[in-house]
Design a binder for these strands. Structure first.
Lengths: 253, 253
DNA sequence: AAGTGGTCTAGACCACTCA
DNA sequence: GAGTGGTCTAGACCACTTG
């Protein structure tokens, strides 16, 4: 008796769609996540145990487990053997995802603007060969852009793309994010390896970002790979540190 | 016929320990990861399909899937439905994990040194209440340390801990990392929410880090939670950007 | 002793890709 | 049509925590 569980309202799980394309574990996870965000499941509260939850919803335990695991990976829930599953304290914050600055700005309600500073094809040098895994001397595409929001410059974006993207439309780059354009060509990003650091701004960067020369810039360099495992983009970006930072949630596996 | 698979050597999977505490999926994942690192499975090569691999090893498909999923989450493998599983191109790089600077330095072969600049208990102000979820006015522990390696200063570490850690030994802090001490007290970090940014160094910071006043520092603020979901640490760190940066691998889920 | 999550099995059906 | 990964089921046994 006296289960100290936070029994989730039954009607939270009605309308599960077993025929549509959305997996059951995803539907469950979404509903639990919503309950956490709207306070139905406050920080520290315990979830019903996996077996009981499965029975109540008419789902197998592995399916329930998978749903819960999604939220554990997001840093919303913590599991302890012999104890149960609880909601993590502390405000929820979005994890670092495989997104672009353009999408970050869009999501936060700002309107990103892009000025293409230069775009040209050139032979891949040693560093590009290393980062993109293309043949030496390949005709890779170099792009240099200035990204702003509300008229205020936020970042300088230097990117190099493999030869297959050499025909990328410069005009489209001014209107859309690079990742949007790549997706439109059927490329889906799957893995990215990146490094975040800082350094003093060069005078050129200071001019473009409207900051004092020698003051700090936040830097990020990233190589992104598509779902076939090939490198599709190498970028070196620098950000105005008063306008941008990287937020992330780490989970011990 | 003509499977273009990279058949893994059978003997790579002998000696699986079914009675020990190490899960089978973990043993499998470790061996595949080793094969990727030592070149047995080169970038772009295909893995044997899940069912066949399971049969060959006498394991069920879910177990094999779990092993592969571990490596997909690490960014080492990519899966495509109808196609197969392949090794990602590009050099492997460690993912950002829930570790401390102390452990980062140890792992890279350097010997971390710590100077405790100050350590004192004080009443929790509004910000601390917000970050740690403690009661207002609680006697929290403030620690300020300078972390070096090889005699060169690398970072200034400001941390605040909940009242239960107010008796932390200052001498121990000079010899061990904060996370090591917490683990020794039975605390295991599970989730951390952090933000990485940059700014100009204050003159005090510049003095401690042996850099020019006003030059860039890399900053990270983090709140860490234990396996019960309670906040156990809030830190605000600043790093010499020429000596430290954050490396990570992102995977689209 | 009772309750919890952690692991594992042996299947099943489906959606997608490619020849 | 053959092969691949994606999802789901209905159990089983175990390790750990708490009373």
């Amino acid at each position: 008796m006296s289960a100290p569980n936070q029994a989730l309202p039954v009607d939270m799980f009605i309308d599960l769609d077993r025929s549509g394309p959305v997996p059951l574990y995803f539907q469950i996870a979404s509903r639990i996540e919503a309950a956490i965000h709207d306070g139905t499941l406050p920080p520290g509260s315990r979830l019903e145990n996996e077996v009981a939850l499965g029975n109540r919803l008419g789902l197998s335990r592995p399916t329930i487990r998978r749903a819960i695991q999604e939220l554990v990976d997001k840093g919303l829930l913590v599991r302890r053997r012999g104890i149960g599953t609880q909601v993590v304290h502390g405000k929820v914050s979005r994890s670092v995802e495989l997104t672009s600055l353009y999408e970050d700005l869009e999501r936060s309600g700002r309107t990103p603007e892009t000025r293409v500073l230069s775009i040209e094809t050139g032979e891949a040098d040693e560093r590009v060969v290393e980062e993109l895994g293309v043949d030496a001397g390949s005709a890779v595409l170099h792009i240099r852009r200035l990204r702003s929001a509300g008229g205020v410059p936020i970042a300088i974006l230097d990117n190099v793309l493999p030869p297959e993207f050499a025909d990328l439309d410069p005009d489209a780059l001014a209107k859309h994010g690079l990742y949007q354009l790549l997706r439109a060509r059927g490329v889906t990003m799957r893995v990215a390896k990146q490094r975040i650091g800082a350094r003093d701004a060069t005078s050129q960067e200071a001019g473009l970002l409207d900051i004092r020369k020698g003051s700090a810039v936040l830097t990020m360099s990233r190589t992104a790979f598509d779902n076939s495992g090939r490198a599709v983009e190498w970028g070196q970006h620098c950000y105005r540190p008063d306008l941008y930072s990287f937020e992330m949630t780490l989970v011990e596996r």
